[in-house]
Design a protein around this nucleic acid. Structure first.
Lengths: 231, 231
DNA sequence: TCCGAATAAAGAGCAGTGCTCTCGAAAGGT
DNA sequence: ACCTTTCGAGAGCACTGCTCTTTATTCGGA
């Protein structure tokens, strides 16, 4: 976070922000595949070649949008739980808020969880931004465990080899229970994104009628399966 | 399936097949985003404009590849179960075969389940081809129920409103049990695709170490949760 | 204050894309 | 043999990402 001092640096920062802002608008309109650097330049009233003084290229621009979207989704889901609500309700709220954000930002969601762009490599800050959603899910489980509201699962836990998961992730999640529920938590995260993606990408047309109800049901089943008590 | 009679129709069919075949080769190489009609024409030694006599455009070509890939994946997973194996083993085999096909056809998988192409509308034959995978999963459950090898789930079934699911799907699956396991079956399908997609699209890098073991574990947990007895 | 250096802006240009149109050549049926 | 349909090829249009060169503007130090 270098504070801009000179007027040049100020102008540079604002112009770069302008470019990214209009890029996000265009992304929301036409999607990542049809995002055109020239169209962005036209919209800003500058020559297309001038954009390259602020952005290395199309891929870097998409990476910036990726980071923005991950953080926006992360902020949304982190504000979904409420302290006075039950863990299962908070768990479900995260699912529904994530879906709502995806519905309101279809192309951004597709950029995050759809087909990655051909020449893509995830920088470090990207993965931390992407982790905010699964970490929010883990936090609900941990808070429930800390307040004695995480019951043992009814079904016996299957054999589970913890070395399937990266040790850093195990430490990062700091899940109170280190059994098969760790894998179940990853599956819940996957199922959340997968269900939203199936709805948005059309795989549920002709299959699911009431999408929100279906996701809420799935959230509750998954949450109770992980040991969150039904209210 | 109109059998070609005249020599013209024969030549037309073979050339069209050639175009689709090389398109699939290129798709496997560079992915759907970088699929170039001109490159395909070059590869076939014909002018790019001549391709348009056989294919309406890039989108129609991608739709053809979509159909091909869905059917190939469907054939693979339909041949995964073996009669003498236990239902749970067959269930798991479908998961692992689907993953292996996806690993061997990354770009095809991305075309099927990744971000849909901008100007896309799923024709009817596409949805039937896409249904072969979830129907294979349903068939294993039904066969297990018919042979008395589908136990009642240990956890009590949550409230479930069947009207969330399209009636045609309910009839098509003809699941022996019409309770919340119908939604659980859809979730299993979603989780299978989602887990494979997360692995292929990089969301599991730094999270999951042994991907095949993780998917096998997820398959077994999901299968037993649906009532398939552990061997 | 002036002047050199750093920076920005703009335009031209290259290689590539999807797609359309036109025109000549080949093949088909009558 | 003729006429019609089909086919192949090329030119061309409107785009795209990106680079290079040239001109203009701004900044900082003497």
């Amino acid at each position: 976070m270098n504070a801009p001092k000179t007027a040049r640096e100020r102008a540079r920062a604002t112009i770069t922000a302008d470019i990214i802002a209009t890029a996000r608008r265009h992304l929301a309109d036409v999607g990542a595949a049809d995002l055109s650097l020239r169209a962005i330049a036209r919209d800003l009233g500058m020559a297309s070649s001038a954009v390259y003084r602020y952005v290395a290229g199309r891929d870097e621009l998409l990476t910036a949008l990726l980071l923005d979207a991950f953080n926006e989704l992360g902020t949304v889901v982190e504000h979904a739980p409420r302290p006075e609500a039950s863990p299962l309700d908070n768990w479900t709220a995260v699912w529904l808020h994530a879906r709502q954000w995806a519905l309101d930002h279809r192309h951004e969601f597709a950029l995050l969880y759809g087909t990655p762009v051909p020449g893509y490599h995830a920088p470090a800050d990207t993965v931390t931004a992407a982790s905010r959603l699964p970490l929010t899910l883990a936090k609900i489980l941990n808070d429930a465990a800390d307040t004695g509201r995480l019951t043992d699962p009814a079904t016996p836990l299957p054999d589970f080899d913890l070395t399937m998961i990266e040790p850093e992730i195990v430490a990062l999640i700091t899940l109170r229970v280190r059994d098969a529920r760790l894998a179940a938590l990853l599956s819940a995260w996957t199922l959340l994104i997968g269900t939203i993606g199936f709805e948005l990408f059309g795989h549920h047309t002709g299959v699911v009628t009431r999408h929100e109800d279906y996701l809420r049901h799935t959230a509750r089943v998954t949450g109770t399966g992980l040991g969150l008590p039904a209210t």
